[in-house]
Design a binder for these strands. Structure first.
Length: 552
RNA sequence: UGCCCGAUAGUGUAAUGGAAGCACAUGUGACUUUGACUCAUAGGGUCCUGGUUCGAACCCAGGUCGGGCAACCA
């Protein structure tokens, strides 16, 4: 899949074009600001694509900045995983790795500056009282006591907060804006809270930590971020973002909001993902059914496909839902183009070729990619007994059926034309094996007399097959929108068949695959060697089936 | 009964006052040593009502519908 920009423009790029043309900006600086409190998922991929992709398009730079302002929620474990996932997507922040926590001193100074301007004050209301004074969207708030404290007193109180002179939650620092604003976020928002927690970076240096609204705009400003992109729910925070930077007379970064990625059959809420992991409903964060980047990587999805999806969904202010079929189509395009072919039988029945010599083994050459001769050929062993797919035999098959039925000749791909003479079934009526005869003149699969054979099926020599664990993954949910039913929990829609573990018969060369190697098992689907895969105990994950066949 | 934002085929998007396109999905057909791929072909759209204009998806007004905002989270 090509990496070229399929995205022409979007409303943010239009703004950037105008900023550059007017001279308001001379460079483009963006940032991706994850909080290290969870794993990245495909929704984050959209933000990463927009942040890094925009910088790339304009020859600017994109910073990776960990927004670590809440030590209670954050953990070092996530820092490594987040970096790995961004790199996997193919982005590089170079020297520009930053931490919000490295700006704590500046943020403190900025808070003092606000106090000195009479634009911030210490408030001793409890959180319940705080809510009460703030009012509700339809009614204005009222001014809390202590709002008109002197600068000196506020300075003293704030310093006492910093020095640990108050219990956690005893008071907060608030911006002094307008308790009657129709925008709740402007009703004297909290900007610093007391929280005795050990920070992964600053240890126990601080017992006060800045709130998101205060911290984020300052982080952007310090770094010279010109265009700060975030999701739609922050739209109402923008006036506060602008207010703080203006009052501080700091570099004016600007915030732009876009809609989150939504996909059918996928749930992207951190809380619910955590629930799946904690309740053991999936194998972990990197379970191939998870929409996390590590899970999708393990499943066999490619970074190119994820970025292509981001390009196609674009960047708008309208919150919609993209059909998963769109993504699957992109994945199949990529995998069809870039994965080598192999043969594997996932639900085997045996074929015995009665007129083929008992001990003979032939090697047949088959192409690694039907459209790419440069990918070369490999040899597969052929012998008297083969495994074929159970679905490739049918009693009294209709004419359009591709596989065997008694009396029908079928091409064994790359090998011979074979006719089914009889079928053997067990007591329950299940097919056990097919007795067949082959045409020795049809070596390679072409009949000497030019007769047409409509069907070609895949196979593996029984004598040479490698037994392999195959994990057949399917959608995690049975409905498009598991969150759509207010009466039910999303877990009620978990697909009981989202994982089926089977033993398949593989052509022998496949055991040598490396974890992460991708193949198309012909006529079956796209598969990827799992992290657990070893030559001695092969494990393959099904990424996707082939595009659903037309009805017969 | 507040404030902010949005609305283009089933879905995701383009068209920035001048012929409403593209992709996915769906139907039909062709090709095929993968029922894949590929190719051909069909149906289907500007939320509503007005206004401005020679001309409106685009500008204006009013409405409708949808989303967001009431954590000492981000």
């Amino acid at each position: 899949m090509s990496n070229e920009e399929t995205q022409t423009t979007n409303f943010i790029h239009d703004i950037i074009d105008a900023d550059l043309a007017s001279g308001k900006r001379t460079e483009v600086v963006t940032r991706f600001p994850p909080e290290p409190n969870g794993y990245l998922h495909i929704g984050h991929a959209k933000a990463i694509y927009l942040d890094f992709g925009t910088a790339e398009k304009y020859g600017g730079r994109c910073h990776l900045r960990f927004d670590d302002t809440n030590p209670e929620a954050e953990d070092e474990e996530y820092v490594r995983a987040i970096q790995e996932d961004i790199k996997w997507l193919g982005y590089d922040w170079g020297e520009h790795l930053y931490w919000a926590s490295n700006y704590f001193d500046t943020m403190y100074e900025y808070a003092v500056r606000l106090i000195n301007k009479g634009k911030a004050y210490v408030c001793e209301l409890s959180s319940e009282e705080f809510k009460e004074y703030r009012g509700v969207p339809t009614r204005p708030g009222k001014e809390p006591p202590g709002r008109d404290r002197s600068v000196e007193e506020n300075l003293e109180l704030f310093e006492k907060m910093k020095n640990g002179g108050f219990e956690d939650g005893a008071c907060i620092l608030r911006a002094k804006i307008d308790m009657t604003s129709p925008n709740l976020h402007m009703r004297d928002p909290a900007i610093y809270r007391i929280k005795r927690a050990t920070h992964h970076n600053t240890g126990d240096k601080w017992c006060i930590y800045p709130m998101y609204d205060f911290a984020h705009c300052i982080e952007d400003s310090i770094e010279g971020v010109t265009h700060s992109m975030c999701t739609l729910e922050f739209e109402v925070h923008r006036p506060l973002y602008d207010w703080i930077l203006q009052e501080l007379e700091a570099f004016q970064s600007r915030q732009y909001e876009f809609s989150k990625l939504n996909l059918t059959y996928i749930v992207l809420s951190k809380r619910r993902l955590l629930q799946l992991v904690n309740e053991g409903l999936v194998g972990g964060w990197d379970d191939p059914r998870m929409p996390t980047l590590c899970g999708m990587r393990r499943r066999g999805f490619t970074a190119a496909a994820i970025k292509k999806l981001c390009a196609i969904v674009g960047c708008t202010k309208f919150e919609g839902i993209t059909e998963i079929e769109q993504f699957e189509s992109i994945v199949r395009d990529d995998l069809n183009e870039n994965s080598l072919r192999a043969m594997a039988v996932v639900d085997p029945i045996k074929v015995v070729i009665d007129n083929y010599p008992e001990e003979l083994v032939e090697e047949f050459e088959v192409p690694n990619h039907p459209q790419k001769e440069e990918e070369g050929k490999r040899t597969v062993p052929f012998s008297r007994e083969l495994w074929i797919e159970r679905t490739d035999y049918m009693d009294d098959a209709p004419n359009k059926f591709k596989g065997f039925t008694i009396g029908r000749e079928v091409r064994i791909r790359g090998a011979y034309l074979v006719t089914c003479d009889s079928v053997e079934k067990d007591a329950a009526g299940n097919v056990v094996s097919l007795r067949c005869t082959y045409d020795p003149e049809s070596k390679g699969g072409n009949a000497p007399d030019g007769r047409k054979v409509r069907s070609t099926i895949h196979w593996v020599s029984a004598k040479h097959a490698v037994d392999t664990e195959v994990r057949l993954y399917d959608r995690l949910y049975t409905v498009e929108n598991p969150l759509g039913d207010k009466e039910k929990d999303f877990k009620d829609f978990l697909n009981p068949d989202s994982l089926k573990v089977i033993t398949a018969k593989l052509e022998p060369g496949l055991a040598q695959a490396k974890p992460g190697d991708r193949y198309q098992f012909e006529r079956v689907g796209y598969f990827c060697a799992d992290l657990d895969h070893t030559p001695a105990k092969p494990v393959f994950n099904r990424t996707l089936t082939l595009r659903a066949p037309r009805k017969m």
